[in-house]
Design a protein around this nucleic acid. Structure first.
Length: 270
DNA sequence: CTCTTAACCTGGACGC
DNA sequence: TGCGTCCAGGTTAAGA
């Protein structure tokens, strides 16, 4: 489900409900997510005040003086703020109760997500090797050009590598490459500095627009208040294999690239 | 390092 | 209606 825009939408939706709130309790119904939920979550988190909610890559951090809860939504996860009487559904794995009477509820059918703990002043190992944020300084065409030299893998795979740049997943990689006019199959190491400048700009534009639309809801994604994302209406190529290219009208091609379904225009993207 | 592949898990869509 | 197969927005671990 979630790429950067969906995680950022979740962060913004959660912030007014959780910032400054004290955690009054934690209920773990299932701890066997991608990794087991560590004891700190139930031992250290209750009683703490949430100083802020932050996003790094596709991770969310609930920051407290005792450490930070580190959440990833995997493919199918979502976080919602619900009243305490809300019936528990299948796959509602965690409730974090807040002193405003609300529950922060983590739901994740496929359990590819995680809830881990980061000690104060430490950087969790999962965050250590991540590339720059695409919407912050340090990410541009010169950076992509430099990082891609000598790499033979497809540029789409390169763009989705979280060690290169974070937050870009299968939807937004397809959209950014279409916008930049670059074939997803092209070897990353053989693309010019100028074309990488276009790709960096396109990536930023598509991510920013998706955030403004509240993300993309295909199946599971839902904002903390239950709202869907509306970027699906703006998708140019993702999920449109065989349909006419919005630019030239030719049928969009599709293939697996790096094990991921990929769609592009063989005419407009070179 | 870089690259490829398999694996984790559930639900929905589809074909028969 | 029921069953088998395939596919899905992510990421890591293991092996070449």
């Amino acid at each position: 489900m979630p790429e950067l825009p969906e995680v950022e939408t979740t962060r913004r939706g959660l912030a007014p409900h959780v910032e400054g709130r004290r955690v009054t309790g934690v209920v773990l119904r299932r701890v066997d997510l991608r990794w087991p939920i560590p004891p700190e979550v139930s031992v250290l988190l209750p009683g703490q005040r949430i100083r802020g909610i932050y996003r790094r890559a596709k991770y969310l951090l609930l920051d407290t003086a005792a450490g930070s809860a580190l959440l990833h939504l995997g493919m199918s996860g979502n976080l919602r703020v619900v009243p305490p009487v809300t019936p528990v559904r299948a796959h509602d794995h965690v409730d974090i109760a807040l002193d405003n009477g609300q529950l922060l509820r983590f739901h994740d059918p496929r359990r590819f997500g995680c809830l881990l703990w980061q000690a104060p002043g430490q950087t969790h190992s999962l965050l250590a090797g991540l590339g720059p944020e695409p919407l912050e300084a340090g990410f541009d065409g010169d950076y992509l050009f430099a990082r891609s030299r000598g790499r033979s893998s497809a540029v789409k795979t390169f763009l989705m590598d979280q060690a290169v740049v974070v937050g870009v997943g299968n939807i937004y990689a397809a959209e950014a490459l279409f916008m930049a006019g670059i074939s997803p199959l092209r070897a990353a190491g053989k693309i010019s500095r100028e074309r990488y400048a276009a790709l960096a700009a396109a990536s930023q534009q598509v991510l920013q627009q998706a955030i403004e639309r509240g993300g993309t809801t295909l199946r599971d994604f839902i904002a903390p208040d239950g709202a869907r994302g509306y970027f699906e209406q703006e998708l140019q190529v993702y999920g449109r294999a065989g349909a006419p290219c919005p630019r030239c009208g030719r049928a969009l091609k599709h293939a697996l690239i790096g094990q991921r379904a990929s769609v592009w225009c063989g005419h407009c993207q070179r």
